[in-house]
Design a protein around this nucleic acid. Structure first.
Length: 482
RNA sequence: GGGGCUGUCGGCUAGCUUGGUCUAGGCUUGGAGACUCGGGCUCUCUAGACCCCGGUUCAAAUCCGGGCAGCCCCA
């Protein structure tokens, strides 16, 4: 096959949408399922997902959370108990109405989120303050019947996520939990996925249906649109009251619990593709990639292939012993050039070439995926150099994305400036807002941009409301969201 | 949400305007073999397709309707 057909045939800068679709399909991350809006998470993306699970599980288990699994079916009556929650989710709920040949007496929702099914049970489990806190998490699939255009990873009718659900004795504890989780998310995104994020609170309009308040992390994509990467909600006592989750406190009085819920999904993988990928395909950060380095032997006719393979194996073992996830690509049926392209498409951070020249000089040739730089190092320095290089690549990717985010955050004082900045650059628009939902709505209608975040720490006001010109009450971040 | 468009071997596609030459061509991949290998090398043999349902017609990959699935653009 010609290179142009097998690799990515469109430039990231020229047609971003198509580039994205091609990278996802051709790198082997995902494929379409024969059901509208549904996708197949192939080995490559599932391995990344497992990596995310590994990192996140470790962090929450250290904090005392435990994993569980609740049913995927939710009786309609449960879902309806919290009115705002139901209203929020019902437009995209998939329903089960028949079982075998008989119609169900009560239809069952395929979970769009698990608050209700879990909290019915929480009510049963919680009696005394000694039962608190409850800190459970589950990894599962979620169905939301999207009607608008679907996109691999970014908007699909079924996706994978983790959802944490905690119950606490006090409001303060719930507040703390919300922030602690948000910080874990931020750590995961910035230090592992190498995707910088802005953190803050959602407006009333944008908050999770049924929550007291929602906090979120938002990342900026190269096309100037904003991707919500994770949310952490304080549910207050809203669900406790309708599900009757009460406990007898140390004060011997009856109290409703305070709850939180939070989640991140496979959508982040879409972010990973968009933020770091290039015209050759995926570029994966070393701390999240399933394969950190690939060794490609370069055999020649009339040379000692055996010594090349022996050395490739030695280096493979050495790297593996040092905790580097490495693959030795010794397939005889593909040429080295073919392999180079394939591994680049898949985003592997470091390639190690070992040919006759290297054997002769007791060296290896390294190539980094992010910059295409090649360097030759002495054989005994391989492990050190690879380790250092991995770290460097991780940092380079993050810094590059960080700079992009900063360069695409524009402060504006007037609505005209707002529109111009959004049109020209996209990204985050920093502006003063009068706190009225009317202005929030008007801006959305006229520009398509929504308030992505209210910063946790109020920033200094610098103008009147960007929309109505009335008194500015707070500085907020707008953006067009995915 | 609105608009444009697409569906042919595993992948990329030619053919569709003007129905018959299509027993559907090419490239690539898969299988067998040879030859190679520092950027998708080359050769031989071999396998492999008109999304589904209906309509028009003597005749449909081609025209029409519906369905299913997908893409792109704008909001």
């Amino acid at each position: 096959m010609k290179m142009s057909e097998m690799g990515i045939t469109v430039k990231k800068s020229e047609n971003f949408s198509e580039w994205y679709t091609q990278v996802v399909l051709k790198s082997g991350l995902a494929d379409y399922a024969p059901i509208k809006g549904c996708m197949i998470f192939r080995e490559h993306s599932y391995a990344i997902w497992e990596k995310i699970q590994e990192i996140f599980n470790k962090k929450i288990k250290e904090k005392g959370h435990k994993n569980v699994y609740f049913p995927m079916f939710i009786p309609e009556s449960f879902l309806k108990k919290e009115a705002e929650h139901f209203e929020g989710f019902v437009p995209e709920v998939a329903w089960v109405t028949t079982g075998g040949n008989s119609k169900l007496e009560e239809r069952l929702a395929v979970r769009p989120t698990s608050e209700t099914i879990m909290y019915v049970t929480y009510a049963k489990w919680i009696r005394s303050w000694r039962d608190l806190p409850i800190k459970l998490n589950q990894w599962c699939n979620i169905v939301r019947w999207e009607t608008s255009a679907t996109r691999l990873f970014l908007r699909t009718r079924e996706f994978l996520w983790q959802e944490g659900h905690t119950a606490h004795a006090t409001e303060e504890e719930a507040d703390t939990e919300v922030m602690e989780i948000l910080n874990i998310y931020r750590d995961l995104m910035e230090n592992y996925l190498a995707i910088p994020v802005l953190a803050g609170k959602k407006t009333e309009k944008e908050k999770f249906a049924g929550a007291l308040y929602t906090t979120a992390l938002e990342a900026l994509m190269p096309d100037g649109k904003v991707l919500q990467m994770g949310t952490s909600h304080n549910l207050g006592q809203n669900f406790a009251k309708v599900f009757d989750i009460k406990f007898i406190g140390e004060d011997e009085e009856e109290h409703y619990v305070w709850q939180t819920s939070w989640g991140i999904s496979t959508r982040m993988i879409g972010g990973l593709v968009m933020v770091h990928g290039d015209d050759k395909g995926l570029v994966l950060p070393p701390k999240i990639t399933p394969v950190q380095a690939v060794i490609i032997p370069i055999p020649y006719k009339n040379v000692d292939t055996e010594s090349i393979m022996r050395k490739a194996n030695e280096i493979f073992e050495k790297l593996q012993k040092n905790g580097i996830s490495v693959v030795l690509d010794d397939r005889a049926e593909y040429t080295p050039g073919w392999k180079f392209n394939e591994w680049e498409l898949k985003g592997v951070p470091i390639r190690i070439e070992i040919g006759p020249r290297d054997v002769k000089e007791k060296q290896v040739t390294l190539a980094r995926r992010d910059t295409s730089e090649r360097l030759v190092v002495k054989e005994e320095k391989t492990v050190d150099t690879v380790t250092k290089l991995l770290e460097e690549i991780q940092n380079t990717l993050f810094n590059k994305a960080k700079k992009f985010l900063e360069d695409h955050t524009t402060t504006v004082k007037t609505f005209d400036e707002f529109k111009e900045a959004l049109k020209k650059k996209g990204g985050f628009i920093r502006a003063c807002w009068c706190s009225s939902p009317t202005c929030e709505e008007k801006i959305k209608e006229e520009t398509g941009a929504t308030i992505r975040l209210l910063p946790f720490e109020k920033e200094k006001l610098f103008s009147n409301c960007v929309c109505c010109g009335g008194e500015g009450k707070e500085v907020v971040y707008f953006g067009r969201a995915y």
